[in-house]
Design a protein around this nucleic acid. Structure first.
Length: 466
RNA sequence: GGUCCCAUCGUCUAGUGGUUUAGGACGUCGGCCUCUCACGCCGGUAACACGGGUUCGAAUCCCGUUGGGAUCACCA
């Protein structure tokens, strides 16, 4: 059985968006699953639109997702000699010819075609002229006029194209640089790529590429065209659909594995299973279960999945991801037991790391101010005595474990005759400044005795000064 | 407009001729739990685009219609 070689070939003209990440993921997963090779190639033949900033952004996104590559990154811009060589081969074998039709002429033809029968095709003016190389000449591929070219797609099954619909597309621009279809084919041939998984939007290019493979006498790889990812309005995903860059999700507090999980499940399924760890994905991913219809990107489902991944990730691992978010909020938390205990109180109530970081601040910061709602609702003169009494009680308590605290409060309820809610809510506001927080015993335990007492005293002062 | 692709709840999907009163998840609605918010649990809502065939039998196969998407560059 042959060794699978897949690739991801982004063009560096912007950040890596979720659609691109998904095709990268499919290729990566398939290579990993089949114990094959995954190649990264930067398609920067269009010098005007490619930037190194985009290249870096793509690396950054891929690394964050945990998608690593075995070979590359290769840059097409450094391979122009190879393309020239192959173009010459095509010229020599009669599969290509020089064309001197000007862009303006072509534009006119295109306009007319669109307006009349809708068939936009190069008319073959230079096809049989046998022109030599001249200034500003482009090289066109001499495509067959009759017959059919069939694409045996592993996802979409067979797609038949009439060669009469294809035209003599340009393979070398007038400035001597290769055009996309030529460059991909040459790269895929020379890099030994035998499995091409890519977006649906490439199917119409595929017959041209197949023809190129044949003209070059190279074996045609397996193609698999995955359906597009659509926006809420069912049109192709774009900026106006909101945050689409992978790193934007990182910054919003998503876990890379959650994003991975969501992206794969959008278009691929494994029975009824919704939650997958990265290891499970590598173990279970296949091409057969990729669907044939386009899918709408659903932020709510991603969010729910992120919450699931947060719950499933061990606190010590979550800590690494959370620390940067705390730092942004001025909290210099360190990995360790304390942070982990903080996380344990928050992981079931946070859908994102950002949310978790917000919820964790009060554990670290002592001089917080009270939320208006908290002060108004729970810091009434009537609670003063209770709070004072409770402070005394807690001062005498040495064991601040959740379990022991519960019994302490039980007896406190008995002696005061108060409802638990009447105690817990003011206490919560005193300790956190807010009306919502993790369970009160959890908060007490994590905060510890000293901080609890001082925050209680501060609250008492606050109420008296009102 | 030409070419190509697609079509199950609002969304992602399971389903590959009978085991289906079409299953799961997200969302949504109601309830339980409860110290707040969550989590969790229980329950409800909601789909085979339409029309013809084929067949004893069709969400599953075929054809057409409609609808949606992609693509038509000296971009990738």
């Amino acid at each position: 059985m042959k060794k699978i070689v897949t690739r991801f070939p982004p063009s560096p003209s912007g950040y890596l968006h979720v659609g691109g990440a998904r095709t990268a993921l499919f290729n990566w997963l398939y290579a990993r699953r089949m114990k094959g090779t995954f190649v990264l190639r930067i398609e920067d033949t269009d010098v005007r639109r490619s930037t190194t900033a985009s290249v870096d952004a793509i690396f950054e996104a891929l690394e964050w997702l945990g998608i690593d590559w075995d070979e590359g990154p290769f840059y097409q811009s450094k391979r122009f000699d190879i393309y020239k060589e192959y173009i010459q081969k095509l010229l020599d074998s009669g599969h290509a010819y020089y064309c001197t039709c000007s862009p303006e002429q072509l534009e006119v033809m295109r306009k007319t075609a669109m307006a009349t029968d809708g068939k936009v095709k190069y008319d073959g003016t230079c096809r049989e002229k046998g022109l030599g190389k001249t200034e500003n000449a482009v090289v066109r591929f001499k495509a067959p006029l009759t017959g059919t070219t069939v694409l045996h797609d592993v996802i979409k099954k067979n797609i038949v194209f009439q060669n009469s619909e294809l035209d003599d597309f340009i393979i070398q621009r007038s400035d001597g640089t290769p055009t996309y279809n030529l460059a991909v084919v040459v790269d895929d041939i020379t890099m030994g790529i035998n499995t091409v998984i890519r977006g649906d939007d490439h199917v119409s290019n595929t017959p041209k590429q197949i023809l190129l493979y044949k003209a070059l006498g190279s074996p045609v790889p397996d193609f698999g065209h995955v359906p597009m990812v659509l926006g809420k309005d069912r049109s192709r995903l774009s900026k106006r659909h909101g945050a689409m860059s992978v790193t934007a999700y990182r910054d919003m507090g998503y876990l890379p594995d959650a994003v991975l999980n969501y992206l794969v499940r959008l278009g691929w399924s494994f029975g009824d299973q919704e939650f997958f760890t990265k290891a499970e994905l590598i173990e279970k991913f296949n091409l057969e279960n990729i669907g044939r219809s386009a899918g709408v990107f659903d932020k709510d489902k991603l969010l729910a999945l992120n919450a699931d991944h947060i719950k499933a990730t061990p606190p010590d691992q979550l800590a690494k991801h959370l620390i940067p978010f705390l730092k942004e909020r001025g909290v210099n938390a360190e990995e360790g037991e304390f942070l982990e205990s903080v996380i344990k109180t928050l992981n079931k109530r946070s859908k994102t790391l950002l949310e978790m970081a917000e919820g964790a601040i009060f554990y670290y910061v002592d001089d917080f101010s009270y939320e208006e709602k908290a002060a108004k609702l729970f810091f009434k003169p009537g609670v003063l005595d209770m709070l004072k009494l409770l402070t005394e009680q807690l001062e005498q308590t040495e064991d601040f474990s959740e379990k022991n605290l519960e019994t302490v409060f039980e007896s406190f309820i008995e002696t005061t005759g108060l409802k638990f809610g009447k105690i817990a809510q003011p206490l919560r506001s005193a300790l956190t400044g807010k009306t919502v927080s993790p369970g009160i015993f959890e908060v007490l335990e994590v905060l510890g005795k000293d901080r609890t007492i001082s925050r209680l005293n501060k609250a008492v002062q606050f109420i008296m000064s009102k």
